[in-house]
């Protein structure tokens, strides 16, 4: 069963200096409950793809269809920005509560329970009254993740959320995210330029070529949990995807 279907998506930015054909055509089917990684070099249109799925950009052509079965209610889409995008004037608690208060149909007590549960899950309970600038980069990204997870999204879109963190923190958060995904049984689309991150996280990897991003390879990652970055199978996927990466050629404009 599909959660999301992207068909023939094309996006061109019209700039004064000329048109930038950023993406596509791209077609992807995302099965419900899957963990899909979109992997591609910087500037290939990954962010553009994700933003279009989230409705932040309007595509030139093609369509995005959410097909999640939600028993009649609107499907909830979570989105985590590359730079966190926490509201600096709100405490961590208020940031995480934001999507619940914004909906306006959840009572205060339920809100409190859900926010506290999520903060506990991402290990930020002790920082609920801190402000974003008082936290480290890794904690900020966890808070941003919590703010999306608290909505109990049917599908979660993440745009290189860990790319600005050091390796150690990034790996911790990857493990965290994969566990969360398994527990919450949600659908995840994760964008990254890091091959290792993709192999660690994904059930399936979709590789985009240089701009304008088009799919050059789809690869199922069949590794048992917990995944070890040192296992031979892991390395095999890594090398194989690296080869694909190096064969990518930049098209002349």
């Amino acid at each position: 069963m599909r959660a999301l279907s992207v068909t023939g998506l094309v996006k061109t930015f019209r700039e004064k200096s000329g048109d930038v054909h950023a993406l596509g055509p791209v077609s992807i089917d995302v099965p419900q409950g899957s963990f899909l990684c979109v992997l591609g070099p910087t500037g290939c249109g990954k962010t553009t793809l994700l933003r279009t799925i989230a409705g932040l950009e309007i595509p030139d052509s093609g369509s995005v269809e959410l097909m999640i079965r939600t028993n009649g209610r609107q499907p909830v889409v979570g989105y985590v920005f590359q730079q966190g995008a926490l509201f600096p004037w709100m405490s961590i608690y208020a940031n995480v509560e934001f999507p619940l208060s914004a909906r306006g149909n959840i009572d205060r007590i339920t809100r409190r329970q859900r926010v506290e549960a999520i903060l506990d899950m991402v290990g930020l309970s002790d920082f609920s009254s801190s402000y974003p600038h008082q936290l480290s980069g890794g904690m900020q990204q966890r808070a941003a993740l919590a703010r999306s997870l608290v909505m109990q999204p049917d599908i979660l879109l993440l745009d290189e959320p860990f790319s600005s963190l050091d390796t150690r923190t990034s790996q911790d958060l990857q493990e965290n995210l994969r566990n969360t995904w398994k527990e919450a049984a949600t659908t995840v689309v994760f964008v990254t330029h890091s091959i290792e991150e993709a192999v660690y996280l994904a059930g399936e990897v979709v590789v985009l070529g240089h701009r304008p991003g088009r799919i050059v390879r789809r690869q199922t990652i069949d590794l048992p949990d917990p995944r070890s970055r040192l296992s031979p199978e892991f390395t095999e996927y890594l090398v194989s995807l690296r080869r694909t990466f190096e064969e990518l050629v930049e098209e002349p404009e």
Partner: peptide
Amino acid sequence: LHLEAAKVLGARKTFVFRHVMIPS
């Protein structure tokens, strides 16, 4: 970025105005 964050978090116009625009 903050307006977009508010949007993807499901906030409507009046809520965005009160909780994002004014504090900014």
